[in-house]
Design a protein around this nucleic acid. Structure first.
Length: 855
RNA sequence: CGGCGCGUGGUGGAAUUGGUAGACACAUUGGACUUAAAAUCCAACGACCAUUGGUCAUGCGGGUUCGACUCCCGCCGCGCCGACCA
C-alpha cells in the first residue's frame, strides 16, 4: 500500500504556485473583486496555533472565492512596531529593528509552509519608513483638519512599560499588555478627535450587517451615547455656577443633594481652605479606579458646606457634597442626586440621612403612599409632587423640564458620549516618530512634508529606563522649520494601533512611494469583504480603524469609503488541556504521555495531573508548536484539523487524536484516488448512456454534496463542510465499479471531491488532481457546479407518527399526492397497531417529511 | 449588577430554522488480516426493558402546538464581556 509523501508533495506544489505567481493579483474591472484579510500578525518570531486557525480560515475563503471566479486579494504583512522588540533589546542587547526583521523572516518562512494563497508581492512591514512616512503625512493632514491636537491632561501611565495608554487599553484599571496597575499622570499628549465621529461611528454600526452582533454591541456600549440635560446650579456666595448633566430631568423635584467628583475644580477650591476635605479627596484617589474594589466600595461623601439653589424653586437650597462615586471623566463631573429614582443616590442618601422623595409613581400605585425602601424605582410612571410636571409621564416630563431650563437660559438638552479622544503619544522608541517640532518662539511646528519621513535613529541605547529618543544626543536637536532657531523634535512616538488603523488600505497599493495609496486602487479593492480575527480587538483596533477611515475620508484620501470592513468574523481560541507535575509545575504536552486514560511523565513515568482545557499560553505551557505539527503531518492535516469538528467561532480543543484523525483521512483520500476501486475513464469522457442503479445513486450523492458544500462554505460552517467531504468519501468507497458506468461515476465523484477539498487541503488537492490525469493546476480550476435535477431524490423517507410518536418510516415517491401518502401511512401495520382500531380524527401531511395521524 | 452566548451520547459536535434527535468524527468494544505490533478493513456503540417491539431521553419546571433541541414564561448552571456612565 502506497503512502502519501507529505513533505515532498507540499513543497512541490508550493513551489509550483510561487513559480506561476498564482496568487498575485491586479485590479480587473471585468471580474468581481473579493478582499479577504486576516488580522496581520505581530512578528514575535514564531507562529502559534491561533495564527494557524486564523490564516486557515482566511485561506479557505480566499481559495473558495477564487474558484468561484472572484478576483481575490489576500495579502499579508507585519504589525511590526511595539514593545516586545524593545524588551528584547533590553534583555539581549539586540537592536529592535534587527530583532523585528529577523522575526519577520522566520515567521514568513513558517507561514509559507502553510501553503497560503497569499500575494506575497504585497507584503508590508509597518516599521519601515516606506510605510510609516505616509502615516506621518496623514497625521499632519489631521492636524490641519483639526482632527489632531495637543493637550495637557491626566493620562493612564503604565509603570511597567513606562508609557501612556489610551482608555481603550486600560482594562480593569490595569495595562492591557502588562497587567500593571495604571497610575494617573499629568502630561502633554497628542490626541486624535475620535469623538468628532462618535455619533456616526455609533449609527453606522447598524449597517454592519455582516458583523457579529456581539462586537456591534460592545462598540455601542463603548461609545456610550446618552441624551439628557446639561444645566447650571447657582451656588451659595463666592462660588461660580456648577454645571451638571442628567438623563433624568423629570426627577428634578426629587433632588436632595448635588455631588461633584473628588477631582472636580470645585472640590479642589473648597479643599484649599478645608484640610478635612483635602484629606477626603486624597483618600478617594488612593483607592483609585482600580479593579473590582469599585464594586464593593462604599458610597462616601463629604459635605462641602456649599449649597446649590434648585433651578425651579427659588430658596430651595441643596447641599453640595464631594462624592467618591462621581466620575470626573464622564459628563461634567457633577450630578444632582435623586435618591428615590437612582440606586447610587439612594445608597448615598440613606448613609447620610438625606431626604428620599419619590416623584415617579408606577401605574397602579397609590401616589399618597408610594415610597421606596432600599431599592430605587427606575421604571415608568406618572410624575407627582413636581409642580408643573405633575401628571405627566416620564418621557413628557423630561421634555417639559428640559424646555423650561432652556427657556430660563440655564442649560440645554444635549447628548454626551462615554467615548474619549484617542491619546496617541507613547514614550517609547520602537514606534513611528510624531512629525512635529517644538520651538520656543513658534510653538508647535509641523515637520514640512518634503522632510518626511522622520525616521528613527539607529544608534540608541536601552541601558536605562525611559525613552531612548529623548536622551539621544543629537536626534532631537533641529532647527525650527519656521523661524530657523534652535528647536527640538517631538520624542514621543505613535501608539502602534495607528499602524493597524490603515494597513488594509496600503495593501491595495503597497509599493506607492508618492502617496499612501492610489484612491482608484483603494476604490477597487476596498472595503475588505471579509475580515477575520480574534474578538479581543472588538473595541480597540476595530474602532480605531473605523475612525481612521472616516478621518482619511474627511481629508480627501479615499473616494467615499464608509466602512473598512464589510464582513467581520471572529474566530474562537485554540485550547489545550493543562498538565502539572506533583509539585504543581506546568508541563509541556510533549513531556506528557497519556496511556489508558492516565497521564504520566514521558521521562520517568511520574504521575501528572490533567488540568482544565484553556487557551494555549506560554505561562501554562499548554502549547503545541505548529511548526512541529506541519513538519510531522503536513500543512494540510493541520489545516483540516483546524476546520473539523468545532464551529470556527467557538473554541477549538487541540488534541493529538484529532490531528491523527486528520492525517489518517488524508491518507485515505490519497488511496481512494491513487488506487481506485475500478479503472477510471480519461478526464472529459462524456456521460455513458447506461448507468447502473448504484451509479445513479452515487451520482445523486455527488451532486447533493456539491450543493451542500457550497452552502456550508458560504456560511462559514467549515466543520459541516468537512463532514460533507467525509460523507462523500464514504459514499464513493461503496462504488465497486462492477456495474455499468460506475467507473465514470467514480471519476465524476472523485473529481468533485478533489475540487471541493482543495480550499482546505490545497497541496493534497493538487496532487490528487494530477493523479486523476489532469495537467492543469487545480488552483486554476473552477468550483464544481451542482446539477439540481441530479441532486434530487425520486423517493422520500417519510416518518409516520401516531399522536406525535414515531411508529413507522415509509419510502414513498417524492411529491406523492397527499391522499395517497395518507393512505399508505394508514395501511402500515405498525401504524394500525398504534391506532388501536380508532378512526383517525385528523391527519397532518408534511410532503416528503412527516405524516402525523391524530386519533 | 448588567449585556451577550451556551447547556444535546463517554467526547467534539449535527439536526434542512417547528417535522424521523444524535449527521460527521473521536474514544471504546468485538472481529478480520498479521509470527507480532502498527496501519487498514468489517461490525456494535444514548439509557432501560424486550421475542417481533416498546418505554424514557436534548440542564430543571410549566405553557403553546397534531408535532418542541428549536417558540413563550419561570428557575438552575457554565462561559465571555462590560461594569459607580448620572
Amino acid at each position: 500500500m502506497s503512502r502519501y509523501n507529505v513533505r515532498e508533495t507540499e513543497a512541490k506544489w508550493q513551489a509550483a504556485w510561487t513559480e506561476r505567481d498564482c496568487f498575485k493579483v491586479a485590479e480587473d474591472p471585468s471580474r468581481p473583486k473579493y478582499y479577504v484579510l486576516e488580522m496581520f500578525p505581530y512578528p514575535s518570531g514564531r507562529i502559534h496555533m491561533g495564527h494557524v486557525r486564523n490564516y486557515t480560515i482566511g485561506d479557505v475563503i480566499a481559495r473558495y472565492k477564487r474558484a468561484k471566479g472572484y478576483n481575490v486579494l489576500h495579502p499579508m504583512g507585519w504589525d511590526a512596531f511595539g514593545l516586545p522588540a524593545e524588551n528584547a533589546a533590553l534583555e539581549r542587547g539586540v537592536h529592535p529593528g534587527k530583532w523585528t526583521y529577523e522575526n519577520i523572516a522566520a515567521m514568513r518562512g513558517q507561514l509559507q509552509t502553510m501553503g497560503l494563497a497569499i500575494d506575497w508581492s504585497r507584503e508590508i512591514a509597518t516599521c519601515r519608513p516606506e510605510y510609516y512616512r505616509h502615516e506621518q503625512k496623514m497625521f499632519l493632514d489631521f492636524l490641519k483638519a483639526g482632527l489632531a491636537y495637543r493637550k495637557e491632561s491626566w493620562v493612564n501611565w503604565d509603570p511597567v512599560d513606562n508609557t501612556v495608554l489610551a482608555n481603550e487599553q486600560v482594562v480593569d484599571g490595569r495595562g492591557w499588555r502588562t497587567g500593571a496597575l495604571v497610575e494617573k499622570r499629568k502630561l502633554s499628549q497628542w490626541f486624535l478627535k475620535i469623538t468628532d465621529f462618535a455619533d456616526e461611528l455609533l449609527s453606522a454600526l447598524a449597517g454592519l450587517e455582516r458583523w457579529p452582533e456581539k462586537v456591534r454591541i460592545m462598540q455601542e456600549n463603548w461609545i456610550g451615547k446618552s441624551t439628557g440635560l446639561r444645566f447650571k446650579f447657582k451656588l451659595s456666595a463666592g462660588h461660580e455656577d456648577l454645571e451638571v448633566f442628567t438623563t433624568r430631568p423629570d426627577t428634578l423635584f426629587g433632588a436632595s443633594f448635588v455631588a461633584v467628583s473628588p477631582n472636580h475644580p470645585l472640590a479642589a477650591k473648597v479643599a484649599e481652605t478645608n484640610p478635612a476635605l483635602a484629606e477626603f479627596i486624597a483618600e478617594c484617589n488612593r483607592s483609585g479606579t482600580s479593579e473590582s474594589a469599585i464594586e464593593t466600595q462604599e458610597k462616601k461623601g463629604f459635605d462641602t458646606g456649599v449649597t446649590a439653589e434648585h433651578p425651579f424653586v427659588p430658596g430651595w437650597n441643596l447641599p453640595v457634597h464631594v462624592a467618591n462615586f462621581v466620575l470626573m471623566e464622564y459628563g461634567t463631573g457633577a450630578i444632582f442626586g435623586c435618591p428615590a429614582h437612582d440606586q447610587r443616590d439612594l445608597d448615598f442618601a440613606r448613609k447620610y440621612g438625606l431626604p428620599v422623595k419619590p416623584v415617579v409613581v408606577p401605574e397602579g400605585q397609590d401616589p399618597a403612599s408610594f415610597d421606596v425602601g432600599t431599592e430605587a424605582y427606575t421604571g415608568p410612571g406618572t410624575i407627582r409632587n413636581s409642580q408643573f410636571l405633575d401628571g405627566l409621564d416620564v418621557e413628557a416630563a423630561k421634555q417639559a423640564a428640559g424646555e423650561r431650563i432652556e427657556r430660563m437660559g440655564r442649560g440645554e438638552r444635549t447628548t454626551i458620549f462615554r467615548l474619549r479622544d484617542w491619546g496617541v503619544s507613547r514614550q517609547r522608541y520602537w514606534g513611528c516618530p510624531i512629525p512635529v517640532i517644538h520651538c520656543e518662539s513658534c510653538g508647535i511646528v509641523p515637520v514640512p512634508e518634503d522632510q518626511l519621513p522622520v525616521t528613527l535613529p539607529e544608534d540608541v541605547t536601552f541601558d536605562q529606563p525611559g525613552n531612548p529618543l529623548a536622551r539621544h544626543p543629537t536626534w532631537k536637536h533641529v532647527d525650527c522649520p519656521s523661524c530657523g532657531g534652535k528647536a527640538q523634535r517631538e520624542t514621543d512616538t505613535f501608539d502602534t494601533f495607528i499602524e493597524s488603523s490603515w494597513y488594509f488600505l496600503r495593501f491595495a497599493d503597497p509599493r506607492n512611494e508618492g502617496a499612501a495609496f492610489d484612491p482608484a486602487k483603494a476604490g477597487y479593492w476596498l472595503p475588505v469583504d471579509q475580515y477575520i480575527g480574534g474578538i479581543e480587538h472588538a473595541v480597540l483596533h476595530l474602532l480605531y480603524a473605523r475612525f481612521w477611515t472616516r478621518a482619511l475620508e474627511r481629508c480627501g484620501y479615499t473616494t467615499g469609503l464608509k466602512e473598512p470592513f464589510d464582513g467581520l468574523f471572529t474566530q474562537g481560541m485554540v485550547t489545550h488541556a493543562t498538565f502539572q507535575d506533583a509539585q504543581g509545575k506546568w508541563l509541556f504536552p510533549t513531556d506528557v504521555e497519556i496511556t489508558g486514560g492516565k497521564a504520566v511523565m514521558r521521562e520517568g513515568g511520574a504521575p501528572v495531573t490533567v488540568g482544565p482545557t484553556v487557551k494555549m499560553s506560554k505561562s501554562k505551557k499548554n502549547v503545541v508548536d505548529p511548526a512541529h505539527i506541519i513538519d510531522t503531518y503536513g500543512a494540510d492535516a493541520a489545516r483540516l484539523f483546524m476546520l473539523s469538528d468545532s464551529p470556527p467561532d467557538r473554541d477549538l480543543e487541540w488534541t493529538e487524536a484529532g490531528i491523527d484523525g486528520a492525517w489518517r483521512y488524508i491518507n485515505r483520500l490519497w488511496r481512494m484516488v491513487t488506487e481506485p476501486a475500478a479503472p477510471l475513464p480519461p478526464p472529459g469522457t462524456p456521460v455513458p448512456g447506461e448507468l447502473s442503479q448504484a451509479a445513479q445513486d452515487a451520482r445523486r450523492t455527488v451532486h447533493k454534496a456539491v450543493a451542500a458544500m457550497g452552502e456550508d462554505l458560504e456560511r462559514f460552517r467549515f466543520n459541516k463542510a468537512v463532514a460533507r467531504l467525509r460523507e462523500l468519501s464514504n459514499a464513493l468507497e461503496k462504488v465497486d465499479g462492477k456495474g455499468a458506468g460506475e467507473g465514470w461515476v467514480l471519476r465524476e465523484g472523485l473529481e468533485a471531491l478533489v475540487r471541493m477539498l482543495a480550499p482546505m487541503m490545497p497541496h493534497l488537492g493538487e496532487e490528487l488532481w494530477a493523479a486523476l490525469g489532469h495537467t492543469t493546476l487545480l488552483v486554476d480550476t473552477p468550483w464544481p457546479e451542482a446539477d439540481a435535477a441530479l441532486a434530487t431524490e425520486d423517493s422520500a423517507t417519510v416518518a409516520v407518527q401516531v399522536n406525535g410518536k414515531l411508529r413507522a418510516t415509509l419510502h414513498l415517491p417524492r411529491d406523492m399526492a397527499q391522499d395517497e401518502a395518507q393512505a399508505a401511512a394508514l395501511a402500515d401495520p405498525n401504524v394500525q397497531r398504534a391506532m388501536d382500531g380508532k378512526p383517525p380524527r385528523k391527519v397532518i401531511v408534511v410532503p416528503n417529511r412527516v405524516i402525523n395521524v391524530v386519533v
